[in-house]
């Protein structure tokens, strides 16, 4: 390849990288899980540096291997969170009538606490009093901490690449 062509290619690539970077910086997303953690690195082994909660707005600054580096609104410290915890939709926690119409006909917003919610679950429980939701609540409290998980995997010599292949 001639020097001229190489320079042109380098220029085109840097423009592409620059513009895609600028595009990412403007992306706003919402946390779509009950509670999540922002980590120092794009991995579940990364140190937890902050918590985020359902409906929190975050600005996506970068992405890597299914992880997003985000800055929560009003905060100064960014952190990494897995993409599956985020949605491009704006989550409206207290919906007005306009929000409902918009949610019913568009893809931009989602309504928190709408549709199948705790109110519906309670109505269901009243009709089905023998069903054991206490055990479900107990199940949800079974949460393994990061340090316990790390210790468990190390003690069992479970590490990526540790299988037969």
């Amino acid at each position: 390849m001639s020097l001229g062509k190489r320079t042109l290619l380098a220029f085109v690539m840097s423009v592409f990288l620059l513009t895609s970077g600028v595009g990412l910086a403007a992306t706003m997303k919402s946390v779509q899980i009950k509670e999540g953690a922002l980590r120092s690195t794009p991995s579940f082994m990364g140190k937890i540096i902050a918590k985020v909660f359902y409906g929190d707005r975050v600005e996506e600054m970068a992405s890597k291997n299914g992880w997003a580096k985000v800055m929560p609104a009003g905060k100064t410290q960014p952190g990494w969170i897995h993409d599956s915890a985020l949605t491009h939709k704006k989550i409206v926690l207290t919906a007005g009538k306009g929000d409902v119409d918009q949610a019913a006909t568009g893809d931009e917003i989602a309504l928190a606490g709408k549709g199948f919610n705790d109110q519906v679950e309670n109505a269901f429980k009243e009709k089905n009093p023998k069903m054991d939701f206490k055990m479900i609540d107990q199940m949800e409290n079974m949460v393994v901490s990061d340090s316990r998980m790390r210790q468990f995997l190390q003690a069992g010599q479970v590490h990526p690449g540790g299988g037969s292949q």
Partner: peptide, 16 residues
């Protein structure tokens, strides 16, 4: 179906 609604569906399926 939002993850929140999926959660409520899952809780009741679990109870069943």
């Amino acid at each position: 179906i939002t993850p929140e609604q999926e959660y409520y569906i899952g809780r009741t399926v679990g109870a069943r």
